[in-house]
């Protein structure tokens, strides 16, 4: 996979770090570090499903997001529903009827762009668990600053708005968009273009991780 030089404008490949197979009990697990944000994800599945949650034609998918302090708030529930709907499209759930797939995400360190980091760590955990998927997905967050149309991944004081795009790797389509603040159409298109370029960095990173991991196996 070729990555353009300008693809690293928002996301630097050096800022990504990952460990797979960090947990002994989960079927798949990963810890992903994006800039300084660190997220852990674990996948259990396909496993036995509770009777009232069983779906006869596909797998039941549940996402649990754990903040590091306190009990989960409404924002965490929103994260769960966003990641849940992404995973429902990505996972070939009809391969596993009458089962459940549980995804648990644990926040380890919050330095901005937590949604993107948790989505990416989920994808890595799914790859590690060997769950059949339609495509891989990668999320990129960019911020628009109030003074100029500058984009970055870092959480900064003078940001006007923040937008997260989730892409899939087969035909580069958008899977999900989550935004905060005011964004004009021009800005949106600009962000989309830059984020789409940057998603290539993450897909390349996935590929590197798999090849590194597969040789070990």
């Amino acid at each position: 996979m070729e990555v353009d030089a300008d693809a690293e404008e928002i996301l630097n490949a050096d800022s990504l770090k990952c460990e797979l197979n960090t947990l002994s009990r989960a079927d798949g697990s990963s810890v992903l570090c994006q800039n300084k944000t660190v997220m852990a994800a674990a996948v259990y599945g396909p496993v036995e499903v509770k009777h009232h949650k069983m779906l006869i034609d596909k797998a039941y998918i549940e996402v649990i997001y754990k903040p590091k302090c306190g009990i989960s708030q409404i924002g965490d529930r929103l994260f769960e529903s966003i990641i849940g709907s992404i995973c429902e499209t990505a996972i070939l759930s009809s391969f596993y009827p009458r089962t459940a797939i549980y995804l648990i995400i644990q926040e380890l360190q919050d330095c901005g762009a937590t949604l993107a980091c948790s989505i990416n760590s989920t994808c890595l955990a799914l790859i590690h668990a060997g769950v059949a998927m339609n495509f891989l997905f990668a999320a990129v967050t960019c911020e628009i600053h109030s003074d100029q149309n500058q984009l970055s991944q870092f959480q900064q004081e003078n940001r006007k708005s923040e937008i997260t795009f989730v892409f899939e790797n087969t035909s580069d389509r958008i899977l999900a968009v989550d935004s905060y603040g005011e964004i004009s159409e021009v800005e949106y298109k600009d962000c989309l273009k830059k984020c789409r370029n940057s998603s290539k960095v993450i897909f390349k990173f996935y590929q590197d991780m798999i090849s590194k991991y597969a040789t070990k196996m």
Binding site: E19, L20, V31, C33, V38, Q109
Partner: peptide, 14 residues
């Protein structure tokens, strides 16, 4: 980098 420093990149089986 806090916890990100604890990640061991060379040891894939963590």
């Amino acid at each position: 980098g806090g916890l990100s420093d604890s990640l061991d990149l060379n040891h894939i089986f963590s």
